[in-house]
Deep mutational scan, measured.
Amino acid sequence: DSWHDTVDGIELELHGADEELLKLAKELLKRGVSEEEVRRIIEELLK
């Protein structure tokens, strides 16, 4: 799946992010949310 590559990229960027955020990112990508949107959501949550 192409979203796996996206998640791997996000995981590299979010090496400090907790497991729950990564699960959320994967779930959003699986549901068709764009990579940009996922990054934006996670950045908001990390604030």
Rank of each mutant, 00 (worst) to 15 (best):
D1F: 00
D1V: 03
D1M: 01
D1H: 04
D1K: 03
D1N: 07
D1P: 09
D1A: 05
S2V: 06
S2H: 14
S2G: 10
S2I: 05
S2T: 12
S2C: 08
S2F: 13
S2Q: 11
S2R: 04
W3V: 14
W3T: 11
W3E: 14
W3P: 13
W3C: 08
W3G: 15
W3L: 14
W3N: 14
W3F: 15
W3A: 15
H4K: 12
H4Q: 10
H4E: 11
H4M: 09
H4N: 14
H4F: 13
H4T: 11
H4G: 12
H4D: 11
D5E: 13
D5C: 03
D5R: 00
D5V: 06
D5F: 00
D5H: 02
D5A: 02
T6H: 15
T6I: 15
T6P: 09
T6E: 09
T6F: 10
T6G: 15
T6S: 08
T6L: 10
T6C: 04
V7W: 05
V7K: 09
V7P: 10
V7I: 12
V7Q: 09
V7N: 15
D8L: 09
D8F: 02
D8Y: 01
D8M: 10
D8A: 15
D8P: 13
G9F: 14
G9Q: 07
G9S: 11
G9P: 14
G9V: 15
G9D: 13
G9C: 10
G9Y: 12
I10S: 14
I10K: 15
I10H: 15
I10P: 15
I10Y: 12
I10N: 15
I10T: 11
I10V: 08
I10R: 12
E11I: 12
E11A: 05
E11W: 01
E11M: 07
E11C: 05
E11T: 02
E11F: 04
E11S: 14
L12Y: 01
L12T: 07
L12N: 13
L12Q: 13
L12V: 11
L12I: 15
L12S: 12
E13Y: 00
E13H: 04
E13P: 12
E13I: 02
E13T: 01
E13A: 01
L14W: 05
L14R: 06
L14M: 09
L14I: 15
L14F: 10
L14D: 04
H15T: 08
H15D: 09
H15I: 11
H15K: 10
H15V: 14
G16C: 03
G16N: 06
G16H: 06
G16E: 09
G16I: 13
G16K: 02
G16P: 03
G16M: 07
G16L: 13
A17F: 07
A17N: 06
A17T: 10
D18G: 13
D18T: 15
D18S: 15
D18W: 11
D18H: 12
E19P: 06
E19R: 02
E20G: 12
E20T: 07
E20Y: 06
E20M: 08
L21T: 11
L21W: 11
L21G: 02
L21R: 02
L22C: 04
L22A: 08
L22G: 06
L22K: 14
L22Y: 04
L22S: 09
L22V: 13
L22P: 01
K23W: 05
K23C: 02
K23S: 08
K23M: 11
K23R: 10
K23V: 10
K23Y: 06
L24C: 09
L24A: 05
L24G: 02
L24I: 08
L24K: 12
L24N: 03
L24S: 03
L24R: 06
A25H: 02
A25R: 02
A25F: 05
K26C: 03
K26I: 14
K26F: 05
K26M: 08
E27N: 04
E27S: 05
E27Y: 01
E27D: 14
E27I: 05
E27A: 05
L28H: 01
L28R: 00
L28G: 00
L28F: 01
L28V: 01
L29Y: 02
L29G: 02
L29E: 04
L29I: 12
L29R: 09
K30S: 10
K30D: 14
K30G: 12
K30F: 03
K30E: 14
K30A: 15
K30M: 11
K30V: 13
K30H: 08
K30Y: 02
R31S: 14
R31G: 12
R31C: 05
R31D: 08
R31Y: 05
R31P: 02
G32C: 03
G32A: 02
V33R: 04
V33S: 05
V33A: 07
S34L: 10
S34F: 05
S34T: 14
S34Y: 04
S34D: 07
S34M: 06
S34P: 13
E35R: 15
E35N: 11
E35H: 12
E35Q: 15
E35K: 15
E35Y: 15
E35V: 14
E36A: 14
E36P: 14
E36G: 09
E36S: 12
E36M: 12
E36R: 07
E36N: 13
E36L: 13
E37C: 06
E37G: 06
E37Y: 02
E37N: 08
E37I: 13
E37L: 08
E37F: 03
V38A: 03
V38N: 00
V38Q: 00
V38L: 04
V38W: 03
R39T: 07
R39E: 03
R39H: 06
R39Q: 05
R39P: 01
R39M: 07
R40W: 06
R40Y: 05
R40C: 02
R40M: 06
R40V: 05
R40Q: 09
R40H: 12
R40E: 07
I41S: 01
I41V: 07
I41H: 04
I41A: 04
I41C: 02
I42L: 09
I42T: 01
I42D: 00
I42A: 01
I42C: 02
I42F: 04
E43S: 14
E43K: 14
E43D: 10
E43V: 08
E43F: 08
E44F: 05
E44I: 11
E44K: 07
E44W: 04
E44S: 15
E44Y: 06
E44L: 10
E44D: 09
E44A: 14
L45H: 07
L45V: 06
L45E: 03
L45T: 06
L45D: 00
L46E: 03
L46F: 05
L46N: 05
L46C: 03
L46A: 06
K47D: 04
K47M: 07
K47C: 01
K47I: 12
K47R: 13
K47E: 05
